[in-house]
Computed example of a mutant assay.
Amino acid sequence: MRVLLLLCLPVLVLTGCVTAPPSNPSNLCRVFKQKHGWYQDADHAYKRWGAPIPVQMSIIYQESRYIGDARPPRNHLFWIIPWTHISSAYGYTQALDSTWNHYKSQTGHPFADRDDFGDATDFVGWYVEQSHRILGISKSDAYSQYLAYYVGAGGYRRGVYRHKPWLMRTARRVQSRAHRYGRQLAGCRSELEHPGHWWWPF
C-alpha cells in the first residue's frame, strides 16, 4: 500500500486541483448540484461585480466547456512535432497571461489561478463589470458582453466583430444559453441557497 501511494502521489499532485467537467452542462441546476461550491462561487462573483450568474456560466462554458485546464491547440514544428500553444489562453476562462495578470493586479488577488473555478467566476464577473463601466454594456446583455470579452474593449469600440460572422454566431449561442440557464436557475435557486439534505440523481 505504501509503495502504491508513493507511485500515485505525483499524479495526485499534478491533477488533484482540476476536477472533471460536469456530466450535464446543458442544465445549470444539475451543474450546480453536481459541482458543490460552484453556485456559491458564482453567487459571490454576482454579489461582488453584479454579473448575472447565467451570463458568467454561459461565458465560461463557451470558453472551456467547464474544463479547468483547457488550452488552445498547439503549433507544430515542421508540421509534425507538437510545439508551443497558439496562445497563452488557459483554464476555465481561457484568459491570456496578460489579461489574467492585469486582473490580479487590479483586484488585489495575486494568487488567483485560472484552473480554480472560484477565481474563474470572479474574473468573468470583473470583466463584465469592466465592459459595463468602460463600454456601457448592460451586465445582463450576454451577447454584447461576450463580444467584448472576446475582442477586448478596444476591439469592441472599433466594431471588429462585425467582420467576424462566426464570432457573432458564437455570441448568439452564448446569449441563448444564458437565457436558458436563467430559466433553469429560477427553478432551483432557492434549493441551492438552502440545500438542506437533498439528493439529486444523475
Rank of each mutant, 00 (worst) to 15 (best):
D113T: 03
L96T: 14
Q106S: 07
G159I: 08
G118M: 12
P165V: 06
V31D: 06
R162N: 15
R189G: 05
D116E: 14
R173N: 15
C29F: 14
R169F: 02
W79C: 07
K139F: 04
D122R: 03
D119I: 01
L14M: 15
H197Q: 12
R162S: 10
P21Q: 10
S98Y: 10
H163F: 13
V55I: 10
P54S: 06
H163A: 14
D122A: 05
P195V: 11
S98V: 14
S190R: 13
R2E: 13
A95M: 00
F32Y: 15
Q94S: 07
H109M: 00
Y143R: 04
Y149T: 05
W126R: 04
G50K: 09
Q56C: 06
A70N: 04
A89Q: 08
M57V: 01
L4V: 12
R133W: 08
W198E: 13
G68P: 01
Q145T: 05
P10D: 08
G187W: 03
P110V: 07
T19E: 11
H76R: 15
Y90H: 14
A45R: 02
L192N: 01
Q130E: 14
Y150F: 12
L192F: 05
Q56R: 10
D141K: 03
K47V: 03
I81Q: 05
H132S: 11
H76D: 04
R133E: 15
T121P: 02
T19H: 05
A178F: 04
P54H: 02
Q184H: 11
W38R: 09
R180T: 03
V18C: 09
Y156C: 02
P22C: 08
H85R: 13
R162F: 07
L7C: 14
A148V: 06
A153F: 02
P72F: 06
A171N: 11
E63H: 08
H102Q: 12
H194F: 04
A42H: 10
A153H: 06
W38F: 12
P165K: 02
I60Y: 09
A142P: 05
G125P: 04
W38I: 02
R180V: 01
